[in-house]
């Protein structure tokens, strides 16, 4: 059902990186290691983006997530250093949570993904076209008056507001 070619192998590698990193995030006791695993996992996602012909998003993924969010999380971990070694990593509902997560995965897989897009699914699982929009077109689309300029401007406003808000919230009130 799946040919074993270079593409598939690369996909497998990045999938393993992504999921393995994610598991590392969840299971690690030490939050510093967790954050490194997170960066690892996000790097895998960037690889998947490349496979999906979205090199720009992959670059943004590396810059924003690995470069900015990862560092931010690492810093936060260090700023709350008293908490890196807490004894109980999981709370009391961890077992129930595990069951629910697995059930969720099964429902998604059996109930949605496989019946619709699977090998014998209702919809084709192959690419509709090999003509892929380029990064230049993405750039135009984001600032084109008839396409995404309004969401683009709104989201930049949101980002500004969030950054200001973050500063206000995190500022030491005593000083």
């Amino acid at each position: 059902m799946v040919e074993l070619n270079a593409h598939t192998v690369v996909f497998a590698i990045f999938s393993i990186i992504t999921l393995g990193g994610a598991v590392g995030v969840v299971w690690n006791r030490n939050l510093v290691s967790s954050s490194y695993w997170l960066i690892f996992s996000l790097f895998g996602v960037a690889g998947l983006f490349v496979l999906l012909s979205a090199p720009f998003l992959a670059a943004v993924q590396v810059l924003v997530y690995i470069g900015a969010v990862g560092i931010l999380i690492t810093f936060s971990v260090m700023l709350t250093r008293g908490m890196t070694q807490i004894k109980d990593v999981f709370n009391r509902q961890s077992a129930a949570s595990g069951v629910v997560a697995v059930l969720l995965f099964v429902v998604l897989l059996v109930g949605v993904v496989l019946p619709v897009w699977g090998p014998s699914g209702a919809l084709s699982s192959a690419p509709a076209s090999d003509v892929v929009a380029t990064t230049a077109e993405l750039g135009v689309a984001l600032v084109d008056g008839s396409q995404y300029v309004l969401p683009f401007e709104l989201v930049s406003l949101l980002l500004t507001a969030a950054l200001l808000g973050a500063i206000v919230i995190a500022r030491d009130q005593d000083k």
Partner: peptide, 17 residues
């Protein structure tokens, strides 16, 4: 909050099922 979230998810699963 996590307890609430768990309940939400269970409800969502039930609805899905």
């Amino acid at each position: 909050v996590q307890q609430y979230l768990l309940l939400v998810l269970i409800a969502a699963l039930l609805i899905g099922v």
